[in-house]
Write a protein that binds this DNA or RNA. Sequence first.
DNA 1: CCTTGACTTAGAGCGCACTCCAACCCCTAC
DNA 2: GTAGGGGTTGGAGTGCGCTCTAAGTCAAGG
Lengths: 148, 148
Amino acid sequence: MSSTALAPVAVETSPPCGPAPVEAAPGEDVALSIAEVAERTGVTAHTLRYYERIGLLSVPRDEAGHRVYTQAELARVVFISRLRLTAMPIRDIQAYFRLVAAGPGNEDQRLALLERHRDQVKARLTELESALAVVEFKIATYGGNCLP
Amino acid sequence: MSSTALAPVAVETSPPCGPAPVEAAPGEDVALSIAEVAERTGVTAHTLRYYERIGLLSVPRDEAGHRVYTQAELARVVFISRLRLTAMPIRDIQAYFRLVAAGPGNEDQRLALLERHRDQVKARLTELESALAVVEFKIATYGGNCLP
DNA sequence: CCTTGACTTAGAGCGCACTCCAACCCCTAC
DNA sequence: GTAGGGGTTGGAGTGCGCTCTAAGTCAAGG
C-alpha cells in the first residue's frame, strides 16, 4: 500500500461516539464497492479480500454476490490499516476482533491488548528516533569521512 | 533480534573521526568471536553469517578459519543493526556498502542515499505517531465503547 | 448475441529477512 | 583417544503479509 490516500475518511469512528454533536456527516448510508474502498483507504482490493478471508472483516454482499462496504466496514478497514501501520501483527489484530466479535463484556481485554500494543509502539518510536539520530550523525560527519 | 543488548558498543564510529580527542578508548585492539559479537550487538550469529554471505560484511579469519571481529567490523555490525532498526531494506544497505567498498570519491552518493533514507524514516515516524494517536484515541474512548 | 469489465472464489506464489540443518573441522580437557 | 563445545560451509526451510492466477459469474453497452 505505501502512502496512498488514506486521508479522506473521517478521523476515525468518531461520529456516533459518546459526547459528540451528532452531525449528519456528509457521507452517511455509504455503500461502496471493493474498488472504491481500495481507492479511499489505500488498501488494495486483493488485501481487502485477504483481510476478509482471515476473519478481520465481514462484508455483506449484494444480490450479485459483490461486496458492499458500509460506514462500519469502511471504518474497520481504516482502523485495521492504522494498526498495520503501527506494525501490529495480523495475529494480534485477529485476536482483537475476535474479542469484539465475542460481544460486550470483554472490553477490559480489548483495552489491555491495545494498551500493550501502544506501549510497544511507543518503545519502537523511541528506538526509531535513536536509530535515526545515528543516521543523522553519519550524515553530519560526512566530511570527516571516518569509518564507513 | 528484538531489544537485546546493543548498548555497550561506543556511540558509533566516533573515536577516530575528524576533530575529536584521540583517547585510547578502553577496548582497542578488540578481537571478538562471532558469539561475542552476537552477545554485544544483539545480532544472532546466524544473522551475522548471513550478513557476511550477502556482502554486508567481510570478516577476517584466524588460522582455524574462525571469524575474528575487530573494532571496525564491530562498528559496522552496530551500524547495520541501526539501519535495520530503521527498517532500511537490506538491498539499500548493500548499495551503501557497495559504495563504501568502491573507495573514496562517491561520498556524495552515500550521503544522498542516507539522506533519502533519513527522510523516509522521518516520514514513517510522523505516520507512526499519527497511527499511535488513533490507537490512543481508541483506548481513551473505551468507556464510550462505540464502533469496534 | 457477444464483448467488456468489474466482480467472485480457492488456491498458489512471492519477497523479505532471517533461521535452521547437516556435515564437517578444530582445539581443549579428561 | 575421545567427548565436548566451539566454529565452518552450502543449502534448505520458515513466517509473515501480502499478491497474483485461473476459472467462473454477472450486468451493461454496442
